[in-house]
Every structure is written in structure tokens, then in C-alpha cells.
């Protein structure tokens, strides 16, 4: 689980095209990705039903994702992947490794 729970959401309402692109960023977790930043999935490090469901829904290494926003109490997150939106909790997003850019 990512500790960085209080990510500033100033980028939420910005147009996605203005999203900052981080160059040469290291692998991070989906839950720690700033809002609006596009990232490429590099791996899913759990093997439970959630991981399986996520993968079946196209959350796979290589796919591009973006965190759109968080729900009122900071959780769950709204994720965009393969042209649709998905809600998942931070705990679940912590298992998805991404590299921004």
C-alpha cells in the first residue's frame, strides 16, 4: 500500500493534454501516480482474484493507464484504461506497477 495518500489533485480538472510528463521516471505504483499522468503498466504483482479480474479487463503490462481522480474520501481511484473507466481502491492499485510517460 502506497503511503502517499494525499496526492495533490490540482491536475484533476485540467485537460489531460496538459498532464505533466515525467521523463525517465522510475517504476512506481499506480496508486502513487499523480492524477492525469499517463503511464505504461509494467506488471501486476499479485495473484488473487482481483489481479485476475484486472488482467481480464485489459489491465495488462504494456497497456496505458491514467488516474483520473479519487473519490471524496481519497479512495477509491478512478482509472482510465483501454478507453474505459475503472474504479479501484488504492490497495488494489498498489499492486499495479507503472512507469510514467
Amino acid at each position: 500500500m502506497c503511503n502517499n495518500l494525499l496526492i495533490s489533485d490540482t491536475s484533476v480538472d485540467n485537460a489531460p493534454t496538459n498532464a505533466p510528463h515525467v521523463r525517465q521516471s522510475p517504476t512506481t505504483q499506480l496508486c502513487c501516480l499523480p492524477f492525469g499522468v499517463q503511464a505504461r503498466i509494467t506488471g501486476i504483482d499479485s495473484r488473487d482474484a482481483v489481479a485476475r479480474r484486472l488482467m481480464e479487463m485489459g489491465v495488462l503490462p504494456g497497456a496505458m493507464v491514467r488516474v483520473i481522480k479519487a473519490a471524496p474520501f481519497g479512495c477509491p481511484l478512478e482509472i482510465e484504461v483501454r478507453g474505459y473507466r475503472l474504479a479501484m481502491r488504492r490497495a488494489e492499485a498498489a499492486h499495479v506497477s507503472v512507469v510514467a510517460g
Binding site: L54, M57, P76, R85, L86, A87, M88, R89, E92
Partner: peptide
Amino acid sequence: PPLVMELPP
């Protein structure tokens, strides 16, 4: 319960 839920258009 895990939450993996589509937010449909």
C-alpha cells in the same frame, strides 16, 4: 470485498 468496478459512460 475488492472494488474493481467499471464506471460506464
